[in-house]
Design a protein around this nucleic acid. Structure first.
Lengths: 358, 358
DNA sequence: TTTTGTTGTGAGACCGGTCTCAAACACGAG
DNA sequence: CTCGTGTTTGAGACCGGTCTCACAACAAAA
């Protein structure tokens, strides 16, 4: 049959033969373990250099059981939020000599499952996951290595978790809007709701999504806004269909006078849609979004944002995970990072009076 | 149900014992090779399921010599250009059941070398690299597996390469500026120049950088602009220092009236700097950039850009590489993808007359 | 009936490392 | 000079798969 082009690489045995020592001794030098006399040590190193020895990490991992790498599964690498978090993870990992295998779930559970399976089969020492859907987490339960959750907590899963204070952030951001006089406020999120929602916010079990909605609703309640749930829009994605839906919302008679977006990708799409409809920010509509993406400061007007410590999010998750890899076994920790609101120019008073139901 | 702390994973031998067949037979079923009778096949599968068998990809790779994964080394995952290219690569890889190990070089050769060493040690089957510096490519020469270059060609390295028509793109973009009447045009790039430059464009051996400069200079020559080299700014990065340098350039007496930026990150920084200086686009200064990043269409004014087929860039590179992994051994190919210019509102006539040397 | 395939199965080598164990050796003390 | 302790070293098992090879069982051909 077809044999792979046998690029006979140099192994410890080859080096041992060249250095005229046993395989075990050569391995000790090359692997940096055990004790070897100075002279032999030098001889082996020289032989290795002469032959151009390169260790086979795979073989090493096989016996040690450790692969020296962790797997990271995020929803969408293209989202600057994740890119930045991944940098935080990578930077920490590099310091510990651990490398990162990145996988994209596209926010789909099936892809996530598959990615985790592959990563696990590759014997990653640990896993950092941003779970796509909270309803389907059996595959996360079955993970046999340390696991850390990034950005999204799963109450049913007792593992290390790093999130931001989503509820408070949403609360404060929404207050900004209610205090400006808005009463028809929409929350637009990329999250997909599994099953029915209608007033059962507590049943949503992806923390990020739930907490934000709870914060949003709380602010609405404070302002005596009824039926605020009605204005929560799920499943906004980078697609034509989703964009059309936004346009429809913006063109409806009772369009919102203010919108809170769940991430910068959604916000950008909203920004474009608002423009397309010939609406002005903040004159006709106010906009606030999660994530201080770099573009938000250069639009006209610049967008008021909830600044999340994204890099720190990734960094902390990696630190937690790596600490655990090193043998720490205290009970799972949940870190909640604070957010701040950066007020720019995208929030104004509503054009029509609050009680105008046109 | 609680799992025993012992993570001793299930191996083929365990399954074999459970199914009462030999290890070899169980392996045949589990590995999907060789011939096995229907009845035994079913029995093994059942035993595997009962025990919860998970193959150890590492062990498998060790004997086959194939790891089923490719390594990708990019300059900066945070740059949307690379995120998108990586998506192109991932999508193609997934279709072939190959997975991607991503590494970040931060555009530093040493980090690149280290990343490549690690990936090679992990026995990746192939490598896609965006070389950080063209001067230092010995480590790329030594790579023993198929290699494909992404976005940046290396004339001294005869391997599969996918780039865009940088020279032509720069030429056309610069013409846009000269035809609008500009004569003091700057080209700002993130690339770091090793050694001296001064008129020796042909000596720059990173294709992307060289070709763009050649295109830029050609357009300047067509317009009889002298000393255009003087206005090429290297090493612009996401740093304070670099930002200060831009401000300095914009505040100088003979500041450029038009700028061409090498990527969207640089362009965004420029955009902010221009604002900070109280200059208006395109009234005081015109701006064109490589890469149709999503924010470029929402600024005021929206930015005229060179639209590169970034996704296709990654896709093609992956296709080329995977084809080679499958045994194709025709001579290395160089694919050059076309670009288009999307004219928006950031180019105007210079405020002062062309020959005003104030 | 004997010969010749064909197919299914088991035994065991092998990949390239790590690591255990015991033998070989060095050296100071008794 | 012998003994005990400690250091180096080599032989070989092992990790969890793949794969070669030999052989048994059975079927078809001679």
């Amino acid at each position: 049959m077809k044999r792979p082009p046998k690029v006979s690489s140099i192994t410890v045995s080859d080096v041992a033969r060249e250095a005229k020592v046993s395989k075990a001794t050569a391995a000790r030098v090359l692997g940096g373990y055990g004790r070897v006399s100075q002279s032999v040590h030098a001889a082996v190193l020289e032989a290795a250099k002469a032959l151009g020895y390169r260790p086979n990490e795979l073989a090493r991992s096989m016996t040690t059981g450790r692969s020296g790498s962790i797997g990271v599964v995020v929803g969408d690498i293209e989202n600057p939020f994740f890119s930045l978090a991944v940098r935080g993870i990578s930077d920490v990992a590099r310091l510990s000599g651990i490398n990162v295998i990145l996988a994209n779930s596209g926010e789909e559970v099936e892809a996530e499952k598959s990615a985790i399976r592959v990563l696990l089969a590759k014997q990653v020492d640990g896993l950092i996951v941003t779970p796509a859907q909270a309803g389907d987490i059996a595959h996360l339960r079955e993970i046999s290595c340390p696991l850390a959750l990034l950005d999204r907590a799963l109450p049913e899963l007792d593992v290390d978790t790093v999130t931001v204070d989503d509820r408070d952030a949403a609360l404060r951001a929404t207050r900004l809007l209610t205090q400006a006089g808005h009463r028809r406020i929409a929350y637009v999120t990329a999250a997909v709701l599994s099953g029915d929602f209608r007033g059962a916010a507590s049943r949503i079990n992806t923390s990020t999504v739930r907490e934000r909605i709870l914060g949003f609703l709380e602010a609405c309640r404070e302002a005596d806004i009824e039926n605020a749930e009605r204005n929560i829009h799920f499943g906004s994605s980078r697609s034509e269909r989703s964009h059309a839906l936004l346009l429809q919302m913006l063109r409806s008679a009772d369009r919102p006078t203010a919108i809170l977006a769940s991430d910068s990708v959604v916000a950008l799409d909203l920004f474009k849609a608002i423009r397309e409809c010939g609406l002005g920010i903040p004159r006709d509509i106010s906009l606030v979004t999660f994530h201080d993406a770099d573009w938000t400061s250069v639009t006209t007007p610049p967008i008021t944002v909830i600044d999340q410590p994204v890099y720190a999010l990734g960094k902390s998750a990696a630190e937690l995970l790596i600490r655990r890899l090193k043998g720490d076994d205290r009970p799972p920790e949940s870190i909640v990072l604070p957010t701040t609101i950066i007020e720019r120019m995208s929030v104004g008073a509503p054009l029509r009076l609050p009680d105008d139901q046109s």
